[in-house]
Write a protein that binds this DNA or RNA. Structure first.
Ligand SMILES: [Zn+2]
Ligand SMILES: [Zn+2]
Ligand SMILES: [Zn+2]
Ligand SMILES: [Zn+2]
Lengths: 123, 123
DNA sequence: AAATTTATGCAACTTAGTCGCAAAGGATCT
DNA sequence: AGATCCTTTGCGACTAAGTTGCATAAATTT
């Protein structure tokens, strides 16, 4: 049981159950956003998708987790941090986290998704 | 039958059928991206969704039409033009076209989607 | 006109995510 | 400990956007 995860949940008034711990452990180890399937495969225990999505919704409301849709009609999840952009390559389907300067935009930007060809695929 | 649409298809080696014309007419009149349902509702004739999606796929390959996913798990379509960004409001679900300066990004960016709260909803 | 190719419509299918409900797990009180 | 209450979990049924197979219709070629 991870110390940081315990305090993260405590800070947001979320009771830390086994399922929640499993999800957060995987997200914490990840270096880029993951889908439900990918997260499930990285868990040591099994978990029903209903449980997964309900807890993810809870994390989202609390602002702990951030999600966005890729071009494969799946949601990808990561722990919230600095607001950064995601580049999704249409060719190799790799998702890359990146910093982007938007200049000034009216309203509040919470998520930035760029799609196209990554530098490897763009020849 | 619209003159511009005829030349658009001719330029891309696409045979202009009734279904294709109906789709392109709606997209041409639109001031912002539309979903399948919205496009269907703006047509004068009925069209099967299989026909719609097959032709949209054709337009996409030809580079005539651009699509992206919103936060309602639907695709939104518009005629390709300058590469501009779309702002999707999480609160009022309005989709706004906007110009954005990304600075320099490696690879080729084909689509930019921002999500958050639009200026009206961000109080 | 016949043969071949292409486009359309219908129905069945796929699949990520949702929902209702009953059982399991935890906390609280007596 | 046992009874009661609330929350969480898992199962199965469901939803809905988009896809696919196939038969018919329309256009094109021979
Ligand atoms: Zn790539
Ligand atoms: Zn990221
Ligand atoms: Zn708004
Ligand atoms: Zn636009």
């Amino acid at each position: 049981m991870n110390e940081q995860i315990q305090t993260l949940c405590k800070e947001h008034n979320i009771k830390l159950t086994t399922a929640r711990s499993l999800i957060l452990e995987v997200l914490k180890r990840a270096s880029h956003p993951l889908s439900y399937e990918q997260i499930k495969d990285k868990m040591n225990a099994s978990m029903d998708k209903a449980t997964f999505y309900r807890n993810i919704a809870l994390f989202e409301e609390a602002g702990i987790v951030h999600k966005f849709e890729s071009d494969d009609r799946k949601w990808y999840f990561e722990l919230s941090g600095t607001t950064h952009a995601h580049f999704i390559c249409e060719h190799c389907h790799q998702i890359t986290c990146m910093e982007v300067d938007l200049g000034k935009v009216e309203g509040e930007v919470k998520s930035i998704v760029l799609k196209g060809l990554c530098k490897e695929c763009h020849q």
